[in-house]
Write a protein that binds this DNA or RNA. Sequence first.
DNA 1: GCGGGCATGTAACTAGTTACATGATTTT
DNA 2: AAAATCATGTAACTAGTTACATGCCCGC
Lengths: 181, 181
Amino acid sequence: VSLRHALLGLLAVRPASGYQLTQQFAGPLGHYAWQAGHTRIYPELAKLADDGLASLIAEGARGSRTYDITDAGREELRRWLLAAPERGVVRNEMVLRMFLLSALPAADAGELLRRIAAHCAAEAAQLRATVRTDYASEPGPLAFGLLAAEFGLRQYQATEDWAHWALEQLEQRGTLVGSPA
Amino acid sequence: VSLRHALLGLLAVRPASGYQLTQQFAGPLGHYAWQAGHTRIYPELAKLADDGLASLIAEGARGSRTYDITDAGREELRRWLLAAPERGVVRNEMVLRMFLLSALPAADAGELLRRIAAHCAAEAAQLRATVRTDYASEPGPLAFGLLAAEFGLRQYQATEDWAHWALEQLEQRGTLVGSPA
DNA sequence: GCGGGCATGTAACTAGTTACATGATTTT
DNA sequence: AAAATCATGTAACTAGTTACATGCCCGC
């Protein structure tokens, strides 16, 4: 139940309403780590409050309901974060596409690899710009967004490098797939 | 509907039974790209056959049922793979943990980063060994597993580097999170 | 006063997990 | 003959998506 812990983590940084949390998932968090829409977030917040891990601390304009994490919630979050790093859920459509490359004829595979490389390069360039701007504007403690941006940057760079490597292999061998391992 | 396409991709490489496909998901495929258990795979195979994208080509010992991809299935797979690289589903529990680092006190965050770095280093080392062995034993066309292993290797390396970078930041600043972006 | 973004929700559906169930072959 | 592994499935549940629905507040 990862959404639960994602919400606890966000509330641990600062209290927020369901709407604000939904916006966070639209950023790098949902981009690299975990996606969620508001229709899951609202019921889960209610459940969190019900279980005593979060509590409703204010109701504001337009019916907004602001929640904060409780001590029990902080404990649960810490327990989850520091638990043994067993493999959790992994689901990534882009990566799946890469794995299925070998099912395509060589020409198509090459085309797809070139697109992947270009896409990653573009994303990395954008993140680099973001990092430069944010870093310059905030010389103090490292913001959540920077930690995430730096991670995304390195991830995209590695993927782009891999795509180029795979293209080289493809050119040298004329085919990508042999007998599976 | 990514599981559908994952199955089509695997069948495109070679015909297989539900059991064999399940085993593939237990390997690097399920590790980095997309997880699936047999209880989802069997019904999805039936649906694929129902929709004319795969077909039952043999029934063997112990009631095993071998499927192959059809021409319509190959077309659908190609269409999906070469479609615009919009952002698909992303869900990764390990990455989520990293993003929530900032919700922990500095000492705990450091501990977690050190664990992440160690974990990634160990995984990368194991993959390096696999790549060396497989590569040596198969000098011909590049196997599916090698493509995947190389990807995992680079991904782990990038994550380990990031964790070390984050640790440095933590040591220099004494805290990880400031005001979120 | 009205258009757009804020803010929360419900209902119906699809996807995925966990637990349970069963039987066939191969290995020891 | 027993144990391990092969091989497929069903049922009940949990998680997540899509479509729908509603009302409030702020700026123009």
